[in-house]
C-alpha cells in the first residue's frame, strides 16, 4: 500500500512539474510567436508617429526611454535609502532585537501592499502638492515601491553574513560603521543580484505609474512632463481596435520580457563571477 502511494504521488508530482513548465513555456512561446513578426527596428528607435494608434508608422521609443528614466532614477534613490536600512538592521541592531524584527515585519507588509495602492497614495500626495502626472510622479511612486523590494532581498543576503567575519573585524578595533565596509565587500555580489532582480520587477510594474506618470508620445525633457512606460504602452496598444496596433503590443511585450530576462541573467552572472573575494 505504501509503495502504491509513493508511486501515485510521484506520478502526480511529475505531472505538476509538467503543468508548470507547460504553462510557462506557453507564455514564452505565445509572446515570441506573436511579438516577433511585429518586431522591427522602428519599434525600438522611433517615437509613435501621428497615426501610430491606428496602425501607421512609429515605434515605442517613448515608452522605452520613459521606463528607463523612471526605473533608473528610482533605482538610484531606492538604493540610497535601502542600503543604509539593511545595514542598520543587520550591523547596528542585534540579531534578536525587537526593533529589527518590527522593521522586518513592516517591510514585509509594505512589500505585500499592491502597487495600485502605492499609485493611489502617491497620487493623493501629488494632488496635495499640486503636482501633475509627470516623470517626477512616476519616479516617486516607483521609488516608494522599490524600497521594500530592495530591503527585503538585500536583508536576505545580509542576514547570511558570517558572524565570524564581523567578529574578526570588531576584534581589530573597528567601529560598526567601519565593519560595514567589510560587510559590503562580502555581500556586494548579492546586493548586485538583488538590485537587478528588483529592477526587473519595477520595470514591469504598470499599476503604480498609471496614476502618476501619465502617458505621452514624446520623450520627457524635464521632470514635470508626463512620461510613457512600457507596460502602460502595451496595455493601451492592446485595447486598440486595430489589429496592427495589437500586434505591436505583442512586440512591445516581447521587448519588455527581453529587458527583464537580460537583467535577471546579468544578475545571475554577477553572482557567479564576482564572488572571488567572498569568504565561504
Amino acid at each position: 500500500m505504501k509503495f502504491f502511494a509513493d508511486k501515485f504521488f510521484r506520478a502526480l508530482m511529475v505531472l505538476s512539474m509538467l503543468i508548470v513548465f507547460a504553462f510557462l513555456g506557453s507564455i514564452l512561446i505565445t509572446i515570441l510567436k506573436n511579438g516577433w513578426p511585429a518586431m522591427s527596428w522602428d519599434m525600438v528607435t522611433q517615437l509613435p508617429g501621428g497615426g501610430f494608434y491606428i496602425g501607421k508608422e512609429g515605434g515605442v521609443l517613448n515608452a522605452i526611454v520613459g521606463s528607463l528614466y523612471i526605473v533608473g532614477a528610482s533605482t538610484v534613490l531606492g538604493l540610497l535609502a535601502s542600503i543604509p536600512i539593511v545595514f542598520f538592521i543587520n550591523i547596528y541592531l542585534k540579531k534578536e532585537s525587537r526593533l529589527a524584527s518590527f522593521v522586518r515585519l513592516s517591510f514585509d507588509v509594505l512589500y505585500g501592499i499592491p502597487s495600485i495602492v502605492y499609485g493611489a497614495f502617491a497620487f493623493t500626495i501629488m494632488i496635495f502638492f499640486g503636482l501633475r502626472t509627470s516623470l517626477l510622479g512616476g519616479i516617486i511612486v516607483i521609488t516608494l515601491l522599490i524600497i521594500p523590494i530592495f530591503v527585503r532581498s538585500m536583508d536576505e543576503v545580509a542576514r547570511q553574513l558570517p558572524k565570524d567575519l564581523l567578529d574578526a573585524t570588531y576584534s581589530l578595533g573597528a567601529t560598526r560603521f567601519e565593519a560595514i565596509k567589510v560587510a559590503i565587500r562580502q555581500i556586494l555580489p548579492g546586493i548586485a543580484t538583488a538590485t537587478l532582480l528588483s529592477i526587473g520587477r519595477a520595470i514591469g510594474d504598470a499599476a503604480g505609474v498609471m496614476f502618476t506618470a501619465g502617458f505621452t508620445d514624446s520623450i520627457p525633457t524635464s521632470l514635470d512632463q508626463p512620461a510613457a512606460t512600457l507596460p502602460l504602452s502595451i496595455f493601451f496598444q492592446l485595447s486598440s481596435p486595430t489589429p496592427e496596433v495589437r500586434e505591436r503590443a505583442y512586440a512591445s511585450a516581447l521587448l519588455l520580457t527581453l529587458i527583464v530576462l537580460v537583467l535577471s541573467i546579468i544578475g545571475r552572472m554577477i553572482t557567479y563571477r564576482f564572488s572571488k573575494n567572498k569568504i565561504k
Binding site: P162, D164, L165, D167, A168, T169, Y170, S171, L172, G173, A174, T175, V182, R185, Q186, N277, K278, I279
Partner: peptide, 21 residues
C-alpha cells in the same frame, strides 16, 4: 570598546580572512 579591542586582539577558531586582498 574599539580602543580596547585594538589593544587586545582575537584570533578565532576558524580562520576568517576579510573579503579582500
Amino acid at each position: 570598546i574599539t580602543h580596547i579591542r585594538k589593544k587586545i586582539g582575537l584570533l578565532s577558531q576558524r580562520p576568517t580572512p576579510l573579503p579582500m586582498s
